[in-house]
């Protein structure tokens, strides 16, 4: 007897980034990490945000500074288990998200474990950003290690234009 229903929720979405995150992603497309600098307190946010949480001052697309592609690992979580099973095929996803198309709404899928979700504080920034460390880099991963963003050859203006952070010391 069928005691349970195996099914999934599959929803295409479009996130409107706004000028601040939009410019940050545009920077990644050009292999640069841009920080948003609060015009009042001069704190630098990576990733930038529309509003400084300390002074409630709006940041605009003019309040940017170019930073180095390097930083320090603040903390990390190592992921050893595959929570999600096998990645569903594009054919299946297209049958579920019609009339949207998976070529325009690609599915994000985690890398093969073990990998690590890391907090990296970019040099010159006052906040840390979340990213990935995977593969052989995992052996060198520790809190306080220096890390450098490794950009993909082909970039589209997406947080995963940075393939991962490589540990350099």
């Amino acid at each position: 007897m069928a005691r349970k229903l195996d099914w999934d929720i599959t929803v295409p979405y479009k996130w409107t980034t706004g000028p601040v995150i939009g410019k940050f992603l545009g920077g990644l497309k050009e292999h640069t990490i841009l920080g948003g600098k609060c015009p009042a307190c001069k704190k630098v946010f990576v990733p930038p945000q529309d509003l400084c949480p300390d002074c409630y001052v709006d940041l605009t697309e003019d309040d940017f500074v170019e930073l180095k592609n390097e930083g320090e690992i603040i903390s990390f979580t190592q992921v050893n288990q595959n929570f999600f099973g096998e990645k569903p095929s594009d054919e299946y996803l297209n049958s579920r998200i019609s009339p949207a198309d998976v070529s325009e709404h690609p599915l994000l899928w985690p890398p093969e474990p073990p990998y690590a979700i890391v907090m990296v504080k970019i040099d010159g920034a006052d906040t840390a950003m979340v990213h990935l460390v995977k593969g052989n880099e995992m052996d060198k991963l520790k809190v306080g290690a220096r890390a450098k963003a490794k950009f993909k050859g082909e970039t589209i203006g997406h947080i995963l234009d940075i393939e991962q952070f490589e540990i350099i010391s």
């Binding site: 005691r3 349970k4 999934d8 980034t17 992603l25 050009e30 709404h105």
Partner: peptide, 25 residues
């Protein structure tokens, strides 16, 4: 001039199991 990337598009995929219970079964 750095381009403003206006949007990010993806698909959400959440598999689940629903246990019916005896009546619904």
């Amino acid at each position: 001039m750095t381009e403003i990337v206006n949007n990010v598009q993806h698909t959400w995929h959440v598999p689940y199991h629903w246990s019916y219970g005896s009546m619904t079964e």
